[in-house]
Design a protein around this nucleic acid. Structure first.
Lengths: 221, 221
DNA sequence: CGCGATGCTGAACGATCGTTTAGCATGTTG
DNA sequence: CAACATGCTAAACGATCGTTCAGCATCGCG
């Protein structure tokens, strides 16, 4: 049970089942995927799936654990963005990691354990990256760094979660290199020069919020 | 019991079924919701659901159509953002419209008809808004306006799609006014001054992309 | 040799799925 | 009055679900 992966890339039957489960859960969702689907994809009997993993829910947890283990590779390695590095590696070899990306996207939207942990780690690393950028002067400081990191992290995930809509609109898959290339410059332009040409909107919002003074501690009730 | 009164107060049984279907589809997803669940929530027999809507898939289409009709209110009204206005109204009175918001979020991700149409309209309106901003000088022009509008629209949807993660991280619901208020300034700051303090990253990316010259039609292989 | 794990299957279980059918009230219409 | 459509339900259909069970090979180990 421990070494599902043999040395040279051949997989244990349990690992093959798990891989197909990740692919199917990621592409159709958990509820819409049956154990029989997974078994058929892996070329085994449905009973064997249960035999190896106990139940469908435990199989899902095994997939979560495997994904989490893949994302947080060698935790005691040198510091630095680990999740970001993993995802960059994924995007570089997309065809191989697409099932993982899809699975994570599915878990992010339906609230699985893997999704939660990866989201937290992603926000954390985004915050660290921005802090480092602010420290070395390449990024602007913020009045609310936590919220800004949250926003940037969520914005980064948006094309992933909306990849079906993006593909429909663009007529190209999110995973394709051309799509990533086309997105890069407008995105960096947004993050470099912004969308607005001046700070009229920003000042207006600041004034409006100041006027709608938040209830701090003046009255109690 | 939902207080989803239409004009006169009471709903027909079919409308009650549809409303509970929207709520359950939105909160659990289509595949994970059974007709018996919907029937039980609406206080009717499963057979009546089929009697009124024909099948589960047709019930889903009826929900889509109802949501689309609610979002695109009075199409021949004066110009201007309709979908954006509708969604702003929903977010302003969230307790009543949360089922709609949840349903749309679910359909945006799993690609229902309602999600597709709303997404297209949202992107279109975003593009028009940005075009107007560029025309009157309040927004910066772009080399790729279509992609920029796509990005801005997707970014706007991110907090909605990730509202579960956002709530977990912030300890507050996305729908709460305080959350929206806290998000406003960092978001506008991002869209006014950007994230980067200079254009080093932008220039580096531009160079890198120019180096990875896309295969156009210059020499063949 | 025997013998218990291990990996795996085919058949079946009960539950639940979406859907169908027969039929009961009720109200309108001729 | 009869005839009929409407709103609705109880019961059951076949399919499929997750899961269990009995048993067949295979293999390491005494």
């Amino acid at each position: 049970m421990l070494n599902m992966r043999s040395a040279s890339g051949d997989l244990t039957t349990a690992a093959r089942i798990r891989d197909h489960a990740i692919e199917l859960f990621g592409s159709r969702g958990y509820a819409a995927t049956s154990i029989r689907d997974i078994a058929r994809a892996a070329g085994v009997s449905p009973a064997l799936v249960i035999h190896h993993f106990g139940s469908k829910e435990e199989l899902r947890r095994a997939c979560d654990d495997y994904l989490i283990g893949s994302v947080f590779t060698e935790k005691d390695r040198a510091r630095g963005p680990q999740v970001g590095a993993a995802m960059r590696e994924w995007l570089a070899d997309v065809d191989r990691f697409r099932p993982y990306v899809d699975y994570l996207a599915a878990m992010l939207q339906e609230g699985g354990d893997a999704g939660n942990q990866v989201f937290d780690a992603l926000v954390h690393e985004t915050a660290e990256m921005i802090d480092a950028g602010v420290a070395d002067g390449s990024m602007r400081p913020s009045d609310d760094p936590e919220m800004r990191a949250l926003l940037v992290a969520m914005h980064a995930l948006a094309p992933l979660l909306l990849r079906a809509q993006l593909a429909r609109t663009l007529g190209a898959d999110v995973h394709e290199a051309a799509t990533a290339r086309r997105m890069t410059l407008p995105l960096l332009d947004l993050y470099t020069h912004g969308l607005y040409d001046d700070d009229r909107m920003l000042r207006a919002a600041r004034d409006a919020i100041a006027a709608t003074a938040p209830p701090t501690d003046e009255g109690g009730a």
